[in-house]
Structure formats: C-alpha cells, structure tokens
Design a protein around this nucleic acid. Structure first.
Lengths: 195, 195, 195, 195
DNA sequence: CATGAATGAGATTTCATTCAT
DNA sequence: GATGAATGAAATCTCATTCAT
C-alpha cells in the first residue's frame, strides 16, 4: 500500500527517527522509542512507513537533496572568484556541517557499514563525488586567478570533505563557538590559505 | 568470577570481536558471529569475557595504550625540531590512522553515542586531550623555531585530529595509495605548510 | 447497530469473503484483502458486517439454505423410484459438490475445528443429518422396490456424504470431466449399483 | 545453524505441533501454544525448528514415509489375490485413516491451499499418485482373477482415495465403532463388492 | 575449560476495529 | 454511507545469558 508522502505526523515521525538513529544507531533505536519521541502511537509509525528499514532509508536519502541545494547553490563563486568569497563559502560549509549533526551521524552510520546498505551507499557516493568536484573547480579557478597556491585540486577535495566530516563527528560539543572558529581557520589552510 | 587475561583463544575472540563490531556495530554483532569468526565454540566466549558489553568495552579501551605509545612515542621531535621530522611524523600518523580502520570505526561508534557509554567516552576524551596537547606542543615549538607560520596551536590540534578521523572514516577504500598521499599533503597544510 | 441485509455492495463483499476464506482460511484472510477483492474501500466492510467473525459466520450459514433446497428438492424421487432417477440425482449431487468448491472448502474449515466454532458446527451437523436422512430414505425405498441390493441404509448415508466431501476436497483440479465421471460411477457403487 | 534431528524434546514439540495444527490450522496455532502443549519453554521450539513454517512443513512431510510404508507394505496381495485379502487390506486402510486424524487434518489443510505451500503439495501429490497406482493394480488383478467385477481401475483409485479422506474429515467422532464398520462396508462397495 | 541446549525478555510487524471527517 | 488514519494487542523471531554435562 502506498504510504502518504507528507503530513504533519509523518514529519514528526521522520524527525524523531532521524534524531534517534543519530543518537543510538539503527539497531538500538526501537520503533517504540520513535513513536514516543514523535508523540504518536506505536502503530502510527507503520501508517507512514512500511517498516523500520524504510524509515531509516528515507532518513538517509531524503535530506540529500537539501544538502545538495545548500552546499552547491553557491556555485556563482566561480564566475567572480575572490578570497573573500571563498572564505564566505567555507564559513558556511563549516557552520552547516556543525549544525547538521544528526544527519551527519546517520550518514556516518551508513558509510561505516557499506555492505549492509549498498543502495544507500551508492546515493551517498554520488553526492560526495558531486561535492568534491565542486571543490576541485573552486581550487582550479583559484589557482588560475592566482588567489590560491599551486596544489592538486583532487587532493584538496578529498581532504576538505574528510575534514568537514571529521570535524562534525569527532567533537560532540554541540555548538562551541571556539571550535567553530578553529575549524573555519583550519579549513582555509586546506586550501593553502594560511591566515 | 575472574576471567583469564591472556591466552591464544582470548586473543582470537578479541580480534574477532573488534573486526565484527567495526563492521556491524555493537547491536548487530552477535556472540554467535564472534564465536564463529574466532573459530571457537559459542560458550567459550563467556569463558573469557563476562558478557558482550565487557568484550566491547575492552575492544575500545585495550588498544588505547598501543595507540598512545605509537602516536606519542615520537615526542623526541620537540628537542630537535625540523620540517623533515614533522613530515615524517605526519606521514606516520596518516598511515597509522588509515591502517587502523577497524579500531577507528569502533571508536567512532562510541563517540557517536556518548550518552550510552559514558565511561568509555571519558577514556577516549582523555586520550584525545593528550594527543591534541602533543600536537599543540609541536606547533608551538615549530613557531618558535620559525619553521611553522604563526597560528593558534589549539586550533591546529582540533583540526588535525578531526582531519585524521574523517580521513579514515569518510573513505572506505581500504588502502589507496593516491588517497594516502592526498591526505599526507593536506595534513601538512593544516600545519600551515603548503608544499 | 443493525447492518443492511442486502445490497449490491454487501453481496460483493460476501462473495469476496467466501472466495478468500476458501482459499486462505479464516486467519490468513484479512479485511483489507476482502475489501480489495470486492473493489470496495476498507471501512465499507464494516458498514455491512459487524466484524470479521460475523462475516465468516454468515459465509458458512447463509448458503446452507440454498444447499438444502438444491440437494433435497428432488425428494419426489421417493414416490416414483427408479434406477434412472437415482442416477440422475447422484449425477446432480456429484456435479453440484464439484461446482461448489469455495463453499465446501469453507465448510471443511469449520468442520476441521469443531471446538472453535461450535454454533456453526451445530447448524452444519443439522444439515448433514437431514441430508443423510434423505439418502437413507432413498436406499430404503430402493431396497423395497428391489432396485437396490440389500444393505444398511445408514451406512450408505455416511459413506455417500463422506465420499462427496472427499471427492471435492481431495482433488483440486477445478473441473475435470474425467474425474467427474469417475466420481459419478463410484458414487453409484456406494448404493450397490455396479455398472 | 543445523537443528538436531532427533531427541525426546524435539519429538514432543513435533507431536504438539501436529496436534495443534490439526486442531486449529496453521495461523491460529501459536508457537506459545505449541511450547505449552509440549511442556517446553517458548525459546526451545526454536532450538529444534528454524521457524514456525519449517515445523509445519516437517509435520506434513515427515510422516509421509510412515504412511507409505504402512499403506503399501501389503503389496504381497497381488501375488496371492483373494477376496478375503482385499477385505483385510481395506479394513486396515479404513482403520488407519480413522486413526490418523491429526495427520490427515494437517494434510487437508495443505491440499486446501495449494498455492500457498507448493513444495508440500508436490510431495503429497506424489504420494497420492503412488497410492492410487497401488489401488489400480489391485483392481486390475482382481478383475483378471474374476474376483472383482469389470470396471475402470483408475476410477476406483480416485474414488477410494476420496472416500478415505472424506470419511476421516467429514465425521469428527473420534472413534465410533458403528461408523468404522459403515466405512469398511462402503469402501468395499467402491471395489464393486456388495456384501 | 569447553560446549551448546534451554530460557524468556524484547524487538518488529500485522491487522481488526474505532471513529472523525 | 463511505473512507482510511490511528491504535494497540498479539504473534513471530532473535539473542544474551545460564548452567548441566
């Protein structure tokens, strides 16, 4: 049976799932917990989601689109490149990664068990390719304009993504200003900018 | 009842547990799986470990000592600092982090659920403090000797640890030479060294 | 709340229920399945039937009347008994039993669980008594007129009913001409007529 | 994991399953019920059987062998055919079918839902073919020796099997002497023997 | 020490039924 | 009357742990 795709309740359940999957992982999170967190009865979860795995799957894949829009929408940078613009973008990236703690934890959970969720891995890999390609374009443009030092754009892409993930996942202080600044500065260093 | 602390069988079970916890997380990993992976009978696991949680706990905490020794034993660097020495150390760090995939996944699992395993979190936090302090000392020394550019040593510490974790956890290619070099170069950039 | 006793929709639901109960038994058949098979919405089933058990109960008991009419209406046979008339009746019985596959499966389901549906069992028992009594009358008349060999009319009644039920329930080929003829001939043998 | 194939407990569970599946059908019978009937804890059922369906499957297929041995072992009849021998065999068949109530109910359950358990249907069909072929041989031999009247052996086979099944399934009095005799006599009539 | 049968708590999932729209 | 979202009881199955052999 087709499940309703949007409704206030569905959204509450979805957010509850995201939060709890992030906090406790997939197996430890129970449907009962999710229902309670969403202030919804047990059976209602199954009104909106076929089963636990589907809910998890959607928690992983649905936000990708938003992620894509947010992270790549700033591609105007390429036409009018400048150091300041780069700083702005990096600041936004860092802030966004630090803010999306729940979602990134869930993603990490999937990446950590690639054989278990191959379909989801593929979607995530595709997105990470897009993101790294975007970074590489920035690096290339920056080098051409003489704003960034010589370097291997691919390496910067890898390093930058790893850094953003690690920053969010390694430190669990939810929003520490000092930490945020540290990461913003260090992220710039990965582009070769030493402030 | 006191459990034997070392024996060939205990070690096989321990390694099997580490591998499977890394691959599937805590809940998905069953004692039966561990016993099979260790080529040991089901009940034998309980001969060497009180229960599943204790085994997991030990998988997280026992290797910390080795980690500590390996990562910090190179502290001779401070007395005789040079760019080449820094490069060597960074190379080793990157290589070591990439090699210890299983262990780092397990650690990440714990860090991702800080409320669930508070005791283990504390031990890990302590180690990460030590490691960052080590890095800060390097940065301070490097700046004093004019080998490293001015910067905030604390920020470098945060960024470097985040980077190492993210590098290992974001990319699942088990051992990619190209990737390894990328990470080595990028890690140096976090110290302000642009090659 | 009184439920409507007849309507096109009610009938569609009833037939759908009969078909599915016959195919999958009581527990495996869901209201959702019945609604789908009847091309009716889920809640509508409850507009016409108090609950699942009532629908099942009615599927078992409502058709008894039709069964009674069909099987016993030929009682004119007694007044004008002949071998040909017996053959006609037996042919009709066999054909009718083979045709009413769904209903007979449902009946068998109830007979197979006598403690579970005692009320329905009683109604079915009553009908089977009537039917056997009808057969016994035929046998008695046939013996008196010298058309049938000596025998125990009660035994023929038991055997004949058992045979008709078994014929329908043991062979699942829906309508096999060869099988039908076989059963017609064998049914006559139960009356002592060897063709 | 391979399950133990024989043990006192396994047998108790098996018999309990057979009894309850016969009484309540597959869906209504719960593992809890089976465990209670077998005087065994809930989880122990899963020590001996993979899951509910496997237990049911085995309840259907395991006894076939015994059935085969019992029903066909009397094939010596063909070499030394006589009316008395036929009577003996028929008596045994009737008695055996009436005795094996549980098992026959379970078989009937499967035959009634042929699409649901295709694998089991196949095994049952094979056995019923063997049995009917055995009956046909008897009829042929009996006709050749002039002991049985002319007739179609195939038809007798169909009719006889249907009759035995129906006899057991239509009447739920567990062991009624009068009924037994009725069925023995009527069964002979299917062979063309009118006593 | 080593083993694996026994146990039952706890998780997922199904589905009859209610009831507001 | 018709609909289908909401509910929670009840079923199956998993698995850590115990303990007799």
């Amino acid at each position: 049976m087709a499940k309703p795709r949007s409704s206030e309740k569905r959204n509450k359940i979805f957010q509850a799932g995201l939060r709890l999957f992030a906090q406790n992982g997939y197996s430890k999170t129970t449907i009962k917990d999710i229902a309670a967190e969403a202030n919804v009865s047990f059976g209602t979860v199954f009104t909106y989601f076929e089963n636990k795995e589907e809910l998890f799957h959607l928690c992983v894949t649905e936000p990708i689109e938003e992620f894509r829009n947010y992270l790549l929408e700033t591609s105007g940078i390429l036409e009018n490149f400048s150091l300041n613009k780069l700083k702005e973008i990096v600041d936004e990236h860092v802030a966004y990664f630090l803010e999306k703690e729940d979602y990134l934890r869930v993603i990490q959970y999937v990446i950590g068990q690639p054989e278990r969720f191959p379909e989801m891995m593929e979607e995530l890999d595709q997105f990470s390719d897009e993101f790294m390609s975007f970074i590489q374009d920035i690096v290339k443009t920056g080098m051409e304009k003489g704003v960034l030092p010589e370097g291997n754009p691919e390496e910067v892409g890898y390093g930058y993504l790893a850094f953003l993930m690690g920053a969010r996942l390694t430190f669990t202080d939810h929003a520490n200003v000092q930490l945020t600044n540290a990461f913003k500065n260090q992220a710039l260093r990965l582009f070769g900018i030493v402030v």
